[in-house]
Simulated scan of single mutants.
Amino acid sequence: MSIVLGPNRYGKAETRLVRVVRDGGRHHIKDVNVSSSLSGDMAAVHLTGDNAAVLPTDTQKNTVYAFAKRHGVDQIEDFALLLARHFVEAHPTIRHARVEIEEYGWDRRGEHSFVRRGGEVRTCVVHHDADGRTTVVSGLKDLVVLNSTGSEFHGFLTDEYTTLQPTTDRVLATAVTARWRHTGGGRDYLDSYDAVRDCLVQAFAETHSLSLQQTLYAMGERALTARAEICEVRLAMPNKHHFPVDLSPFGLDNDNEVFFAADRPYGLIEGSVLREDAPDAGFAWE
């Protein structure tokens, strides 16, 4: 029996970085979480423990901090591109770099005072390899949205274990994780992010939903129709169930007014929406 080494990668996960820019007495902050993963000619380190091809994960962490000082941190996509290209181009044994960044927003409350913003987290993932292929994926997570009506669910499969009752009026709530793949680089990623986010929110609000799957598709379709710079949207949407509470023991009616918000278990709806002619990313882009 022959045993061989399969696909592998290594890196530094969750390097926390806060970059302060002092513009006189007025400060600006960038608060991010950076994770890097590298792959390439790594057989020897696994098979014999030879570290000659390995860039230490501590070096990857230090690079993040040094580049933040040297180049600054503006759009997270640009910063991720800078890091990914550096890792591949500076070290011949590294053939592929993946850099993921999460950004945490802060609202200004003074010249140098801020309050951490709630809600969703902006994200990006950049891939770059030694053949010059680059993929930029922007996204968000924990975007919590809710429609208090305008959602139905009926006509589904049933069997001897089915207890769920059909409904023509329910609360539809979810915490959206979305990622969208760009067709090229060199753009205003913030403008693109704001526009795609608006498309997702508007489609959720305006779609009379017969299923969360239908809403997922409508959200991806809206973003792709409106924004030519993206070619694929991937969405993960847990169904944050809201169940009407039985108030009859107390002599009260409940016409979809009082709900129990269950946190688990939950339905998880996932899917991708893409242009028919979307270019192949060349590699898995998660």
Score class of each variant (00 low, 15 high):
L274D: 09
I3W: 14
L83V: 00
H112Y: 12
P166K: 07
G118T: 09
G132D: 13
D129L: 11
G72K: 08
L83N: 00
L143E: 01
T59Q: 01
D277V: 10
P279E: 05
R133F: 09
E152D: 13
V258S: 02
C124D: 04
G6R: 14
S148C: 13
A281N: 08
T93F: 15
A228I: 08
L212F: 11
A13G: 05
V20I: 15
L224I: 00
A262T: 13
S148L: 15
V20A: 14
N33S: 15
E270P: 07
I269C: 09
V137Y: 03
Y65F: 15
I101K: 06
V125I: 14
E257Y: 02
S39W: 07
T168D: 15
V21E: 15
D194Q: 15
V171Y: 09
R275C: 07
G118Q: 12
L82G: 05
A13E: 07
G150I: 10
V18W: 02
V73L: 15
T15L: 03
A44N: 11
D74F: 06
E257M: 10
P92G: 01
A175G: 12
R170C: 04
M237V: 02
A203K: 01
P56H: 04
D263R: 00
R122G: 03
C199K: 03
R98F: 08
L146N: 05
I101A: 13
A284D: 15
K69L: 13
R9P: 05
R170Y: 00
V4H: 12
E120I: 05
H96N: 13
D31P: 06
D107H: 05
V4Y: 10
A44R: 15
T59M: 03
K61A: 03
L164S: 15
V145H: 00
G110M: 10
F153M: 05
D191Q: 07
E270H: 11
E100S: 13
N256F: 06
R227T: 00
G49M: 04
T134D: 11
C124R: 01
M237C: 04
S2D: 12
F283D: 11
A173P: 02
A173G: 06
D191A: 13
D191P: 01
A97L: 01
T225M: 03
A130R: 11
D31E: 06
D142E: 08
A284S: 14
D159W: 12
F156K: 02
V4N: 10
C231Q: 15
R179Y: 00
T134W: 11
A68S: 14
A173D: 06
A90G: 08
E276Y: 12
R181T: 11
